[in-house]
Write a protein that binds this DNA or RNA. Structure first.
Lengths: 225, 225
DNA sequence: CATTGCATTTCGCAA
DNA sequence: TTGCGAAGTGCAATG
């Protein structure tokens, strides 16, 4: 990993055209050849970047002008960095990263809810997770206490497009005489007001998922605080 | 901006729980207090991060153990960085960045198409851009040669949710007797097959936007290559 | 201040 | 390779 602090200007021509006037910034060159340019704010997003695979060509400064770095990728996108003044330049060997261990995403919510399907209501029974349809798998298909089929769409954050998605599934599932009539439940850790309004308007139930409650007590000792 | 190369392990507890085993990485502390942790690959996304506003508390190493940095935000999310070994540590004053100048995004496509509305068909006339409705503004409202109202949804990449969006607008606009009947045109630089199928099925027209053609010849000299 | 919708989204998985 | 949905999405504009 190479860290360059430099006063530089940057031009990007690719999916859009963008220009960055000369100013001091961090230019980060990684082992995979990728390049990113960071200002002194915002943790996440670089000002400019080129994702790997890409190639960096360095033209050193000469009497006529400053050093110019050109980063290109296969799609013909170009990132041109004009190095007005180098303030710092160091290289560090880091090796391959062991990678992030995650927990708590939608897939896990789906597993947890499937294991505790009765949290949707007494007498609920699981038919299956990832129930396949022509337009993609339904997160959970189950039956309520009265035996009616229920399609469940799970999101971490429930927004309007999730309701649209569930609506399409319900339309399809209701054409299957073995399942129909199928009703829908939109389950999420958080449901946006507009999504709730749309769901209710379409006769779709809303259910707030409590991740910690679903996970149960046994994980408390694993939690950080 | 502070650049720290260190062998470190990281724990994140917030929207999810995540752990990063000890390995050499770049820890980037920016002037706004944000922190990001980068491996030696991928230009765009850090392994872990905390977006501003957040606060960093440094506990220095002592005889018993290594330095521990704790980054917290208002929502109670925590990022705990255990510094096993510091390999590099430098700080650089960069000042405020003048910021990126962009060109070619959806807003610009909308302006260009509004200025050249006849590219949708001979005799098309603009009613207005950002035509307001109860569920948000329609990108462009216009009339075709026959005088029928046309709602245009503009995307850079046309996908299924864009068609859904336009469908909702059309449903609403068609309730207005001064406008009805309103037909729809889905305009994008690129339209995904499934989006096209859905649009066609709903009687919505598809139109590919040619950005360079819309922009015209006068900008050729401004382009990078 | 919450909400909405875009993004050079990126990223990962599956067909 | 392409398509599609999720993301600790981030981020800015807007009501």
């Amino acid at each position: 990993m190479r860290l360059v602090i430099a006063r530089c200007s940057v031009d990007y021509a690719g999916r859009l055209t963008a220009h960055l006037p000369a100013a001091p910034r961090l230019v980060l060159v990684k082992a995979d050849g990728s390049v990113s340019i960071h200002a002194d704010d915002r943790a996440y997003k670089p000002l400019n970047w080129m994702s790997p695979p890409c190639t960096l060509k360095e033209e050193p400064a000469d009497g006529d002008g400053p050093a110019v770095w050109t980063v290109t990728n296969k799609a013909g996108e170009k990132l041109i960095i004009t190095m007005e003044e180098i303030l710092h330049d160091s290289t560090h060997e880091l090796g391959v990263d062991p990678g992030l261990i995650k927990d708590g995403v939608e897939a896990h919510l789906q597993e947890l809810l499937a294991d505790r399907i009765e949290t949707l209501g007494e007498g609920f029974t699981l038919i299956r997770r990832e129930y396949p349809t022509a337009i993609g798998p339904v997160d959970i298909l189950c039956r309520d206490a009265a035996g009616q089929t229920v399609a469940v769409e799970i999101k971490r954050r429930g927004e309007i497009d999730g309701v649209e998605q569930l609506t399409r599934y319900l339309e399809l599932l209701n054409r299957d005489p073995r399942l129909a009539p199928v009703r829908g439940i939109f389950a999420a850790q958080e449901i946006k007001p507009q999504a709730r309004v749309l769901a209710t308007d379409r006769g779709i139930g809303c259910h707030i998922l409590d991740y910690d409650a679903l996970r149960g007590i046994e994980d408390d000792k694993l939690r950080l605080f």
